[in-house]
């Protein structure tokens, strides 16, 4: 079997860039000073500070608020 040629390697590289673009965007915006994603107002570590403060306050970190929300959104089918 022939080896991958240049164009094929480029295709693969472009694919991986697009595959990770959304993930990298989320990571990038986690350092955004503005709480909205619509505006970029400089770098900050505030959100991480808040996250670790939160973890300290609510000792069992596993029960994060999102888990409660998830539970409450469970469809409640009657047991019949």
């Amino acid at each position: 079997m022939t080896k991958a040629n240049r164009w094929q390697t480029i295709y693969l590289a472009v694919f991986f860039v697009i595959l990770y673009l959304p993930v990298l965007s989320v990571i990038l915006y986690s350092f955004n000073a503005n709480p909205s994603t619509a505006k970029w107002t400089g770098l900050t570590l505030d959100w991480y500070r808040e996250l670790f403060d939160d973890l300290k306050k609510h000792q069992p970190a596993r029960y994060s608020s999102s888990a409660f929300k998830w539970q409450s959104s469970l469809p409640r089918f009657p047991l019949c």
Partner: peptide, 25 residues
């Protein structure tokens, strides 16, 4: 690299597209 995104929350990855494609994205 193809499988790795599976381990990241799908909600989060979708949100990534919002950041990318939004009017002020």
């Amino acid at each position: 690299l193809i499988i790795l995104p599976f381990w990241i929350s799908s909600l989060l990855r979708t949100y990534g597209w919002v950041i990318l494609l939004g009017n002020w994205g």
